[in-house]
């Protein structure tokens, strides 16, 4: 399938890009004065969080599209995105503590963004577990789409809840109303990394989606052959 091959190419390029980002981060981007070397994790951590959030939004929106149109192709996109999203949220959840320990002095903090991502991860896993519980693809698609839409509405609530509870995370460094507080070079590295992670997401998605479609065709042919 062509989209699978194209996805492989994009993934390959993105992985090369990731190497480039790290060379740039380690060699050409200045050391953060207070956080030291640990801050370099940030160039993976934040973009992975972005990719997980993107995956989550895609799952939610395509779930909604599925419920409206009942067209299976939307379900295949939603579920592929959920699987890819699990990977990215895991990266985010593991790099967070690695950075947090030297900088904050604690592995884990219940800050709004970290907690929201933890919930996104848990919701993704719940979504995939639920999908595994049904054999009939129509029921699987319909029921998991309901969960996908519910989860999309839930996450802002979780974010506000934790934010109100307390927040310890550094202020948003990127989209500050006046001007970004991150020095120019670091910001460029971060933005490149975000671009690379987006490409990585797209590459993974295309491959995962192609696999889903192929699996679907195989199952359909198996049943027809037995009929």
């Amino acid at each position: 399938m062509r989209s699978a091959r194209r996805g492989t190419v994009i993934t390959g390029l993105a992985l090369l890009g990731l190497t480039g980002v790290y060379i740039r981060a380690l060699v050409y981007t200045p050391m953060e004065r207070l956080q030291g070397l640990a801050q370099k994790i940030f160039y993976v951590h934040a973009p992975a969080a972005w990719a997980a959030l993107l995956a989550f939004a895609v799952t939610g929106l395509f779930s909604l599209l599925y419920l409206i149109t009942r067209d299976r192709k939307f379900d295949l996109v939603a579920s592929s995105s959920a699987e890819v999203g699990v990977a990215f949220s895991l990266v985010m959840l593991t790099t967070g503590p690695l950075w947090g320990k030297p900088v904050w002095g604690t592995w884990w903090t219940w800050d709004a963004r970290l907690t929201s991502t933890l919930f996104i991860f848990l919701l993704f896993v719940g979504y995939l577990v639920l999908r595994g519980a049904f054999n009939d693809f129509e029921i699987r698609a319909r029921f998991s789409a309901v969960l996908g839409v519910m989860a999309l509405v839930l996450v802002p609530f979780i974010h506000v809840t934790v934010y109100w509870f307390r927040t310890l995370h550094p202020e948003p460094v990127l989209l500050k109303p006046d001007r970004p507080s991150l020095p120019g070079v670091m910001l460029t590295t971060l933005l490149i990394s975000i671009g690379v992670f987006t490409a990585l997401y797209v590459g993974f998605m295309m491959q995962r989606h192609a696999l889903t479609v192929l699996r679907d065709i195989r199952d359909e042919e198996t049943v027809d052959a037995n009929a």
Partner: peptide, 18 residues
């Protein structure tokens, strides 16, 4: 689903958090 008594908390608890 088959394991409904396990599945319900897994799906429902995130929604009870707020």
């Amino acid at each position: 689903t088959r394991f409904s008594e396990v599945m319900l908390p897994v799906l429902l608890l995130p929604f009870l958090f707020p």
